[in-house]
Amino acid sequence: MKKPISFAPLWWGLFAGGGMAAAMLVPIHIALTGLAVPLGWLEEPLWLYQHWLVKVYLAGLISLSLFHCAHRIYHPLFHFAHRVYFSLPSFALRLIGRPVAILVYGGAMVGAASAIWIMTR
């Protein structure tokens, strides 16, 4: 009997890669784009965003990080919250787990796709 292929390692690999990318780079982007620019301390270097290297960098950072977030939202938050708040038995959890997984990882995929779409336009 051949076992169905498990996607767990794929999701986890993306999660781990995204986690590292987010850890290294997200804080400075929040600090700059979310705080320094709106507060008027610095300006968004708009023309830089036209450079292909920057586009590749941002597309990579955002998509990977989104997969990281999807994994963390799906696993602990969804997993625990549902199980605990609604006391669902594990079969029911499995049943709703799939659509939720599709929603969360699907969301990350849509996000990643739009990032790539935006950057390649």
Binding site: V26, H68, C69, R72
Partner: peptide, 11 residues
Amino acid sequence: ELTSVFIAVFL
């Protein structure tokens, strides 16, 4: 684990 929600919204 909650950090991911904030990071996702920011992204």
